[in-house]
């Protein structure tokens, strides 16, 4: 009863907060524009207008396609590698204890230092972009999965043994559902970072994609292009993240 009374009010205030944040960002943007002038950034209105006009261009969509392909490949590889590594390390406790601090340290080093190496290994093009995406995304997915397995209450696995579950049943019916919400959070974080990695990869190692468009706009002093592409990327990322966050909350609701 009280929950149904409280909820709409809370939802309304949340929506209001979000609106305020968007407004504040727009004000900052307009402020930056007023300060730096049209040689660095375009005004919100001009940008949105240009972004919408871009949506009708074939070249724009072929760049979106290039980024999407690289991103989906990176995310798939980063998720698979990260979940497998996290599960493996988590179940094999000793290895997990040894590698976790190493991974955490690895994660904090600026990945920019790896770029020359990756360019040497993969050359320019799709595989380099994917590699950039994967090195950004795989470690957080691994760390979240590892934490999920390590945080699993031992009594759940003991229950599985007491009920005489086979290893396969334990994996499928106890381990997987128990760690799923945590892993999903890891994938959500990995999602954002993989996208970041792919965009950076496109700036350094590609002639195509959204990252390339941004850098291209900067090089050609095409401020309109750069700002509009950044806007589209940011809005897409925010929407995707909001969707994933909502799914994340749903998964956790029973906990």
């Amino acid at each position: 009863m009280s929950a149904t009374l409280v909820r709409p009010a809370r939802r309304r205030s949340l929506a209001l907060d979000q609106l305020l944040i968007v407004l504040a960002l727009l004000v900052c943007w307009q402020g930056a524009y007023a300060y730096a002038g049209s040689s660095a950034i375009t005004s919100p209105f001009a940008t949105v207008a240009y972004a919408i006009s871009m949506l009708e261009q074939g070249w724009f969509w072929s760049n979106v396609g290039a980024t999407a392909l690289a991103f989906v490949s990176s995310l798939a590889i980063a998720s698979l590698l990260g979940v497998l590594a996290g599960l493996g390390l988590g179940l094999w406790r000793f290895a997990g204890d040894v590698t976790e601090p190493v991974l955490a340290a690895l994660y904090t080093i600026p990945k920019v230092t790896l770029y020359p190496l990756i360019l040497l290994l993969f050359g320019l093009g799709l595989s380099a972009k994917v590699a950039f995406g994967v090195i950004h995304g795989v470690i957080p997915v691994t760390l979240f999965t590892l934490a999920a397995v390590k945080g699993l209450p031992p009594v759940l696995l003991r229950s599985a043994r007491a009920m005489r579950l086979s290893p396969r049943q334990t994996l499928l019916h106890v381990l997987a559902p128990a760690v799923l919400p945590e892993i999903f959070t890891g994938l959500r974080v990995g999602f954002s970072l993989t996208l970041l990695g792919v965009l950076i990869g496109e700036m350094f190692a590609s002639q195509k994609g959204m990252g390339f468009l941004i850098l291209n706009g900067i090089n050609l002093h095409n401020v309109k292009l750069t700002t509009a592409v950044v806007l589209i990327v940011v809005v897409t990322a925010i929407l995707a993240n909001a969707g994933l966050l909502a799914a994340d909350k749903r998964l956790r609701r029973q906990r």
Partner: peptide, 20 residues
């Protein structure tokens, strides 16, 4: 090595599965 058929255990800790 393993729990024989015919033995049931109720643990001291809460062992309910939160996702079910």
């Amino acid at each position: 090595g393993k729990v024989p058929d015919g033995i049931g255990v109720v643990f001291q800790e809460d062992a309910s599965f939160p996702w079910l």
